[in-house]
Amino acid sequence: MHPAFSVIFLTTLIGVGQGLFLALFTAQSYALFDLLPKQDGHAFYAHGSLIALLFLIGGLVASFFHLGRPERAWRSATQWRTSWLSREVIVLPAFMGTVFLYGIAHLFDFKPVVATLPGGIAIDLTVVIGAVGWVLAFALYVCTGMIYACLRFLREWHSSLTVINYILLGGASGFTLATVFAAAAAPDLVRFFAGWAAIITLLGLVSRAASLVRNARLKPKSTLQSAIGIKHPKIVQKAQGFMGSSFNTREFFHGKSVGFLRSIKWIFLLLAFVVPALLLATALTGVGALGLMLIAFVVQYLGLMAERWFFFAQANHPQNLYYQAIG
């Protein structure tokens, strides 16, 4: 398939925003049970929510660049019963609204107690809003991943690993950004976020490597014979059927060589997983910590953009049997 950079920015930016919000709420949940130091709502949770919201808005803006008629975008939500894209269109603004309310509640210290646990632990409104946001964040990961995983004819995508990778890669980038944010706003949470960022990054490496191995073993179900409906044993394609390019050759094929794809694969494996994990581990030694953490996030995000490009490019549409080979 032909990777659209608007979709690459959409999926990576909202993934960071989701992951950062999950990191914030995870820290609040731990602090609720005195497993982590409590943080000031205004300085930490409100500002962190603002950063997460900015990434989500950036992803939303990027989504409009691959729409032919942006003014009709609202119609994409009408098929929510059968379309994962429609569900994503509904869940994304709901999640953004929840992140906004979460940040506002912390900003103005609006924390009325909603319930009290048996141990005397008070559950205030921010915890309730955060729990709703937690559910919506994972629902959004699932919706985004299932847009691609539900396509049976694109076998490279049609796997549960697609959804798992969206969750882990978004979570890894979000927790890495949370580490950078904590280094500036809450130093006593740096090790917590860095540890989880490294763990999720390594889990993402395992999951993404598993999908690469799986895809490398796929055997095409279609042939030239089935593509054109002729059962002759010897069919040789001499031309694409077009004097120039067409929608079929532009949108369903990336136009890059096998060597280029192989290079991108190793680049994203290093930048998205190996290098960030090493940088986070080095930063925890205390030498240039904030700078190394910031570099880790930037490098990882660039790696995730390369990973997402490869994800789209690797999907081999069956129509390419007919349109791409030139004798």
Score class of each variant (00 low, 15 high):
residue 184 A to W: 14
residue 138 F to Y: 13
residue 165 N to C: 11
residue 147 I to L: 10
residue 178 A to D: 03
residue 131 A to T: 13
residue 153 F to V: 14
residue 125 L to V: 09
residue 179 T to S: 15
residue 169 L to E: 09
residue 126 T to H: 07
residue 162 T to Y: 01
residue 178 A to P: 03
residue 172 A to T: 06
residue 163 V to G: 01
residue 156 E to V: 02
residue 131 A to R: 03
residue 140 L to D: 06
residue 147 I to A: 03
residue 136 L to F: 14
residue 159 S to V: 08
residue 135 V to A: 14
residue 165 N to G: 06
residue 169 L to D: 09
residue 131 A to N: 09
residue 169 L to R: 08
residue 200 I to K: 08
residue 124 D to H: 14
residue 179 T to Y: 03
residue 137 A to N: 03
residue 163 V to E: 01
residue 172 A to H: 04
residue 206 V to G: 12
residue 149 A to D: 04
residue 138 F to K: 07
residue 127 V to E: 07
residue 173 S to E: 12
residue 185 A to M: 12
residue 203 L to S: 11
residue 164 I to Y: 04
residue 145 G to K: 02
residue 143 C to A: 15
residue 128 V to K: 07
residue 188 D to G: 03
residue 141 Y to D: 13
residue 169 L to I: 13
residue 151 L to I: 15
residue 158 H to T: 04
residue 145 G to E: 02
residue 175 F to I: 08
residue 130 G to F: 02
residue 130 G to C: 06
residue 145 G to R: 02
residue 169 L to K: 07
residue 161 L to K: 03
residue 167 I to T: 12
residue 155 R to F: 00
residue 143 C to Q: 04
residue 126 T to Y: 06
residue 191 R to T: 12
residue 145 G to A: 05
residue 136 L to I: 12
residue 197 A to H: 09
residue 190 V to K: 10
residue 171 G to H: 04
residue 129 I to Y: 03
residue 137 A to D: 01
residue 119 G to S: 11
residue 201 T to C: 13
residue 162 T to K: 01
residue 150 C to G: 00
residue 197 A to W: 10
residue 191 R to F: 09
residue 200 I to S: 07
residue 195 G to I: 10
residue 196 W to E: 04
residue 155 R to E: 14
residue 185 A to G: 00
residue 155 R to Q: 13
residue 132 V to R: 08
residue 153 F to Q: 13
residue 130 G to N: 05
residue 130 G to S: 04
residue 163 V to R: 01
residue 206 V to I: 15
residue 122 A to F: 02
residue 171 G to F: 00
residue 178 A to H: 02
residue 151 L to H: 06
residue 138 F to L: 14
residue 160 S to A: 13
residue 204 G to N: 10
residue 205 L to A: 14
residue 128 V to T: 08
residue 138 F to R: 10
residue 184 A to L: 15
residue 207 S to G: 10
residue 126 T to N: 11
residue 158 H to F: 10
residue 124 D to L: 07
residue 196 W to A: 06
residue 142 V to I: 14
residue 201 T to D: 10
residue 200 I to D: 03
residue 131 A to V: 08
residue 137 A to F: 01
residue 187 P to K: 10
residue 173 S to M: 08
residue 170 G to D: 01
residue 138 F to D: 08
residue 179 T to C: 07
residue 168 L to C: 10
residue 198 A to L: 11
residue 193 F to T: 05
residue 193 F to R: 06
residue 199 I to T: 14
residue 188 D to F: 04
residue 161 L to I: 02
residue 197 A to I: 11
residue 126 T to V: 14
residue 190 V to Q: 11
residue 143 C to P: 00
residue 163 V to I: 14
residue 119 G to Q: 12
residue 117 L to A: 14
residue 159 S to T: 15
residue 130 G to I: 05
residue 181 F to K: 06
residue 170 G to T: 01
residue 152 R to P: 00
residue 123 I to R: 00
residue 205 L to R: 03
residue 170 G to H: 02
residue 152 R to M: 04
residue 208 R to Y: 12
residue 124 D to C: 09
